[in-house]
Design a protein around this nucleic acid. Structure first.
Lengths: 353, 353
DNA sequence: GTGAAAGCGCTAACAC
DNA sequence: GTGTTAGCGCTTTCAC
């Protein structure tokens, strides 16, 4: 009875189903897509046979016919970083709500890889591309990459969480300046006057903007900048926080509050402070950025700046979909941040004033 | 000059390139695939035009021709969990080395979703499927899911990190028993006699096996099991660790060492211990499983069981590829674990003996 | 309501 | 070396 006597290995197709059901392939396709009405008995017969052979339509063949793949490519720097995984998951959820599938790729911040991945996504005919992290983070846009992207965006709309000068990318960006405003405001109101800002990479847009606003806010509140070590950049690691805090201790310039560029760095800072026998937040307040699950996993729980990942992802994806569908999309959108106070920050210790 | 006067919107194809280069589509295809030799001048002319239009071959059309998609589908419970993201990245790297691409999907432990994703992966004609987490973790295989999988594995080999009775899935599994052996051995040698094992889900294979070996090892070393609370299950959260440790304190049954099912739970345990004014590891040793970046991010750094993610991923993927290529693959493979000692464990406090 | 036929963009056999 | 031709598996007119 089985029609796959010699079918061995070859995947079953719509024609096999059609043959066994004594209908045309078109009719099978109709029940598959639910497009037109098919007589009930035929429909049921077809469904039965589909079930029997566990038939699944070939997505590539379908994709060839449709011009839309209903897929969004998402390129992140490193999915192991909770910032990206939280945002990715939010995007995935938003995409699903819109009837889109996502395709993840990691660039691992490899500049060459970014271009290769872009090409791969083009070949897969994704309807839109979202890039978070990597070249789009840089203050000085890399010309070569911008050109590469420009060719891509001729066919595929691209969303980025940073910037890429001279390209038509749509930007959905964290309002880094606003985030630093609320940070300094908060710490100043707690009575802190010696506030350090540690970590990050100055040539990254998000770091650079926070730094600028950090200095502006110190002035605004009449706070001192006692030593160059109060602002150190380098990278986003635990080690950075650890070493930079150590440098402050070594210089005898101990702040009463430290703002770290992210959670990794904040934890490095905290480890170092404890190594010196001081307490958090009694002796020194520490806070970070990103507010992923890490912030509430550690002891004491970390005060952190939150981006509202769900809404962030939703904004990125719905803008991407809007662009795909030819709607007008804002060129730049800002994500407002929120302070989440936990246990690593508190009023300045009166003795330290 | 441009041949896309009216082409607006329509993607450029191999025929457009061929036409402009005055060659046949086959020749363009040849330079694209580097299959046969093409006269140098033609090749260069073609490459130029490809460059000019930023042409990228349609992966779906290619996929239709090839029977192999060179893609491996990876289904994880939740990519935000570092255990999965570390393993995923290791798999991705291994796949790339073998010339394969990976396609990630999250089941979020939604049982219905797992089936849907399986079907999606079948439609995309992935060459193999890797499932980590979810139904494959369960001690009692869900019959319905097993049936579903059995239909899938008729066409696509499947690798799982747990088990699925009655299916032809290949298993690459952490040797949970061995891991618990080295844990108890280690703690016993440090002089600990009151060792609790907290967290996990007893109906999960990895938890169940560890629990069994935990009890066996206590006997082997002549260690007491002072109270039922020394072994509590529930889930894998921070909260679980926190509450279960609290229960031990409430019962006045304070262990000298706690083995947590993973890092989240370990951190909950640690938070609770500190809340009681005790120190780690001076008063109580704590250790966890998984050894992701989290273990070395917290203070004190967590002693943890490591799986060797790189090798783990490599084993999964190379077995998958072997299966795809029709080679003989071992049905079950075990991953040996390793103890990574850090700062949360130490010799038992002599007063407590 | 249904079948025949064309076509999505590419690759691979087969001629030449 | 290169062009012609025939599919890959599906959807979608267009007739009937």
């Amino acid at each position: 009875m089985d029609c796959n006597k010699e079918n061995e290995g070859r995947a079953i197709t719509i024609y096999d189903i059609a043959k066994e059901a004594n209908v045309s392939a078109a009719t099978v396709s109709r029940v598959l897509t639910n497009s037109t009405n098919v007589r009930t008995d035929k429909r049921e017969r077809i469904l039965e046979i589909i079930e029997k052979y566990n038939f699944r339509p070939n997505a590539m063949a379908r994709g060839l016919v449709d011009t839309r793949s209903k897929t969004i490519g998402i390129m992140v720097a490193d999915i192991r970083n909770p910032f990206y995984s939280e945002l990715f998951v939010a995007c995935e959820a938003a995409a699903r709500r819109k009837g889109y599938t996502v395709l993840l790729c990691n660039s691992y911040c490899d500049r060459e890889q970014e271009k290769i991945l872009l090409e791969m996504l083009e070949e897969k005919r994704v309807d839109a591309i979202i890039q978070m992290g990597g070249r789009v983070d840089e203050v000085c846009t890399n010309k070569e990459y911008a050109e590469h992207v420009n060719r891509t965006t001729k066919n595929i709309p691209m969303m980025i969480t940073g910037k890429l000068d001279g390209t038509g990318c749509y930007r959905v960006q964290i309002d880094a300046g606003q985030s630093m405003e609320i940070v300094i405001e908060y710490l100043a109101e707690l009575g802190h006057r010696k506030i350090a800002f540690l970590g990050g990479v100055d040539s990254d847009i998000a770091t650079e903007e926070r730094e600028r606003v950090y200095r502006r806010m110190l002035k605004k509140y009449g706070l001192p900048f006692p030593n160059e070590l109060y602002r150190q950049e380098g990278n986003y690691d635990y080690e950075a926080g650890y070493k930079q805090m150590e440098a402050l201790f070594a210089a005898g310039e101990v702040p009463t509050a430290v703002v770290a560029i992210n959670e990794y760095t904040a934890l490095g800072v905290m480890a170092n402070i404890r190594g010196h026998g001081l307490s958090i937040p009694e002796d020194i307040s520490v806070m970070g950025y990103d507010n992923t699950f890490i912030s509430s996993l550690v002891t004491p729980k970390l005060t952190s700046i939150d981006y509202g990942y769900d809404k962030f992802g939703e904004r990125i994806v719905s803008s991407a979909v809007a662009a795909v569908e030819g709607e007008k999309v804002q060129q730049v959108q800002y994500i407002k941040t929120k302070l989440v106070v936990r246990d690593t920050t508190g009023p300045v210790n009166s003795e330290q004033k």
